[in-house]
Design a protein around this nucleic acid. Structure first.
Lengths: 371, 371
DNA sequence: TTGTATGCGTTATCAT
DNA sequence: ATGATAACGCATACAA
């Protein structure tokens, strides 16, 4: 059977409490006692039983990260960043894949597995503003992305509108007049698609370019395949295009594929920019310009907020915050921004910031009633 | 405070044991009793305390998957597949990133975090045959990849030699005579690089092509950047090349980038094939031919073996198995294998299999001593 | 500075 | 079919 603190205590000739103290780095222990305990631990190969410790402390040291799927490079890189940031802070991450389905996303918020971890960092894709109630939970929750605003939780999001506007303006600054958008979600009022489309339209307006609906390419799922299809459709329809803003890099790489299939030169005939700045972007042919939404900063901030919330559990809840990292437009070959031999160039920066979104939960007015 | 079984029992007017029975689906309960308990659970919003259950049952329902990093598409897709397979079997996966460092890989095998999960699925990259001792552990372990053979653990690996040989032969069958290899590890005797290089050499021999060392491109890390560099070096050196076998897809995509930068047409002037068949391969320009090593089957098999081992903990250990899934050569544009409009074509299949590698641990001879 | 005793919320062993 | 009760291994209040 596994060796317990008891065994260690016995072997070291001390009480179980002393072993516990040593294991947990309690400072007031005689050097010699500590010594004895430590060698007993080594001799016996003792390891703390996490389940017992978790039961006792009511903490697991785990946090859940829920994303649609790891096969999508953006989420894989986000997960990498979150795991690394959590690791630095001494926390362990458990990843849950939702496939962007309502059912799985709902399950993540309140399902069985929920109770294994101390908190949830959640990037929803199916749930939206109508489901705000589901996000009113009593455990530490950090929301990622642009599906849900105003939930009683910390929120880390992107500079979507400003960055999309900057990307569009950048294409216009290159002299492009027929700037297509790939990845639109018709009629949708919330989410990344709507926000980035808004930025695109603002950019067009500011550049004095007309808005032509024929230049809007729909793509429900943001995969390479759907990007390729949307781009092909537009080209097959004979729409005149000299630039493309794809709402994420997967779409952009798909679009690039379609442009190539149509023997259209990028960037000479059509300039192309994506969004997310995934690792792929650097190595596509030609290298893809993109919007860097500050992925590492998002991950680090999300973990920081989560750890802070967990630490403050039970206290009066601090106000919820909404954090937006800086974003940057990265110019590469697909927009002809780089000189031969140059890898990339930052052509614009959009500043983010932190905002206090809501007061503590339960709302202040309720607490005043109590007073 | 959180509601416990006790609260539920009180409310339902039954004993705590009965609540436990209901929660765990024990069959012999009167329908009415079950009913009462279930509504008490709903009313109170009761959830099982996993830490308590884990302590009691000595099981966590978690398994660790240790990979170098999720930013590498192959491992992201592997993680996706493992998580999904585990999910289907009712298990939860905790991912650990090792950065392919010896220190982190050692830590994974015996570190603090080890004790949170019931078993480890481990894809080592830094540790090798010299570290076999580290892999002799007393918890359920499934090894992935080709760094370590002969450890007392189940092992799921790829058809490296056969698949690499088939890929090389395929390039030769297209009439290519100067087939370069990108991603070699000079002097290394073990690991994917060595095995795939062996397959490449066997392929050359079988095709009657000479082996020219100038056609071997080194790349320590298999990233897009190193692939691009190795390819560039070779081209800058003026080596004559009409085909490239890259030891993984990241290298291949990097090489593709370099070929493009050198204004070399793929596949007309140089045919290119990768290894892993990551999702990217389908959407590069041109679409990348690749070796599909059977990723989903690897993931499913690894989880099956793991669950089986965990279930048999305490029993006499069954013999360790080595499982090799079928692999396939997928022809796409980069080898000119597809007709216009066609996406891909399976041009060869290498059969895998299952092999019993070692007898139970402790070794049979030890047990005979006991008898 | 260290020891004793209690309980965290479950499951498992007996009973009945 | 259900109940009483003893672990599971650790952390911690309280003593000493």
């Amino acid at each position: 059977m596994a060796v317990t603190m008891h065994d260690v205590a016995q072997r070291a000739g001390v009480s179980i409490k002393t072993v516990s103290n040593v294991v947990n780095g309690y400072p007031y222990i005689r050097a010699e006692t500590r010594q004895r305990v430590e060698s007993a631990i080594d001799d016996l190969g003792y390891r703390v039983n996490m389940s017992a410790r978790n039961l006792r402390t009511r903490r697991t040291g785990l946090i859940t990260l829920a994303v649609p799927e790891l096969s999508l490079p953006y989420f894989a890189e986000l997960a990498d960043a979150v795991i690394s940031a959590a690791d630095d802070a001494g926390w362990t991450v458990l990843i849950e894949q939702t496939s962007a389905s309502r059912e799985r996303e709902t399950e993540v918020l309140s399902g069985r597995r929920r109770h294994l971890t101390d908190g949830l960092i959640f990037s929803p894709l199916a749930l939206g503003p109508d489901d705000l109630g589901l996000f009113t939970v009593e455990y530490p929750l950090v929301i990622l992305g642009e599906r849900v605003f105003g939930a009683p939780a910390d929120h880390v999001t992107m500079n979507n509108v400003a960055a999309a506007k900057a990307a569009t303006l950048h294409l216009a600054s290159l002299g492009r007049r027929r700037i297509a958008l790939i990845g639109a979600h018709a009629g949708e009022q919330v989410g990344s698609a709507a926000l980035r489309t808004t930025g695109y339209l603002e950019g067009l307006a500011e550049a004095g370019l007309p808005h032509d609906p024929a230049l809007i390419g729909e793509a429900g799922l943001w995969h390479r395949s759907t990007g390729a299809e949307a781009m092909s459709r537009m080209l097959d329809d004979g729409v005149e295009v000299d630039a493309v803003f794809a709402l994420n890099d997967a779409l952009a790489l798909g679009a690039l594929h379609a442009l190539h299939a149509h023997r259209i030169d990028v960037p000479r005939e059509v300039a192309l920019i994506g969004f997310d700045d995934v690792d792929d972007a650097k190595y596509s042919v030609p290298a893809l310009s993109s919007v860097d939404p500050g992925r590492d900063q998002i991950a680090r901030t999300a973990v920081d907020l989560m750890v802070e919330r967990i630490g403050a559990a039970g206290d009066d809840q601090a106000p919820f915050r909404r954090v937006v990292p800086d974003s940057r437009i990265i110019g590469r070959e697909s927009t002809g921004d780089v000189a031969p031999g140059e890898r990339e160039r930052v052509v614009a920066v959009q500043e983010g910031g932190t905002e206090v979104v809501a007061s503590a939960w339960p709302p202040a007015r309720d607490r005043q009633n109590v007073t």
